[in-house]
Design a protein around this nucleic acid. Structure first.
Ligand code: MN
Ligand code: MN
Ligand code: ZN
Ligand code: ZN
Lengths: 151, 151
DNA sequence: TCTTGTATTGAAAATGATTTTCAATTACAA
DNA sequence: TTGTAATTGAAAATCATTTTCAATACAAGA
């Protein structure tokens, strides 16, 4: 989908929720809708000030919180720190993350039903949610050293 | 395994790593080795002072870090905050957590090979780690209200 | 277009979690 | 028992997040 359309869709969603469309929010939405990586508040703040110099960190926190409420972004947990945000993928998906550059590639097609069913009957738990994340190295980061000068 | 033996095993591990066995460390080890729930630093601090009144929060942080280095405890990520620690289970296991009381039940037997293989060939990633966590309600927390007075 | 009410903003302060510093203490090898 | 280096905990420093609040700006309606 055209990046501009996604941004407008997000802004529409905000407006439908009773929010106003402002310059700081637009800057944050453009960033989050366009990033293939999960970003933390400070990163959004730093990148966002390129677009909107007066942007405040408080506004970043507030906007990310609102985008999360609307389901447009979601929190991603990483081995080091948590509290990073990523645009939400369509449908039931999980994440594959590059431990070298941070690239996130959503994937679908996990069928955990047999496993959760077995675990539920073994333990007596009622299972109602699952987290699954794969970690590895993306094609780009696997390039041999000789080709690194191309970046 | 006998709880006392586990505690001694952990203390031996610490000593083998060149650490000294001290009263504060013993208190923290007893707590962590015995807890079926993941505990945060403040919880360890509060519970630990029952055993060792002068215990400092700094020592809790330092000891948890060391136990994690030794692989005796590991960090658990939760929907709300992260940074909780849990004794490490034997072998390749994942966690099933009760969202009501915090009880953690490790489980084994996941076979993600087919999935990771497919995702790897679809995306070109080299996959070398996976996180899997199940969330639900434990048998105890599922008890009807009428029996709650028994607790 | 202009007015107006209210949501929004960002600076600053407050809070909370974690880390660093450091002098006193303590484990344990010799 | 002694010497020494590791450890401890109070206090301060740092870092992340939240709260407060006066000024600003969006957008609905005149
Ligand atoms: Mn799934
Ligand atoms: Mn597994
Ligand atoms: Zn990469
Ligand atoms: Zn429970």
């Amino acid at each position: 989908m055209d990046p501009t359309l996604i941004v407008n869709h997000w802004l529409d969603q905000l407006q439908s929720a009773g929010c106003r469309v402002t310059a700081p929010r637009r800057a944050i939405v453009e960033l989050m809708a366009g990033s293939p990586r999960a970003l933390g508040p400070i990163e959004v703040y730093d990148l966002g000030r390129a677009e909107h110099p007066g942007l405040g960190l408080v506004t970043v926190y507030r906007t990310l919180e609102k985008l999360e409420e609307l389901g447009l972004v979601e929190r991603v947990h990483l081995p080091d720190g948590c509290h990073r945000y990523l645009r939400t993928a369509d449908g039931h998906q999980h994440l594959l993350l590059c431990t070298s550059c941070g690239l996130v590639q959503p994937f679908a097609g996990d069928d955990l039903e047999p496993l959760t069913g077995k675990v539920a009957s073994d333990t007596g738990f009622a299972i109602n949610e699952h987290w699954l994340q794969l970690f590895g190295t993306c094609p780009n980061c696997r390039k041999p050293i000789s080709t690194l000068s191309e970046s």
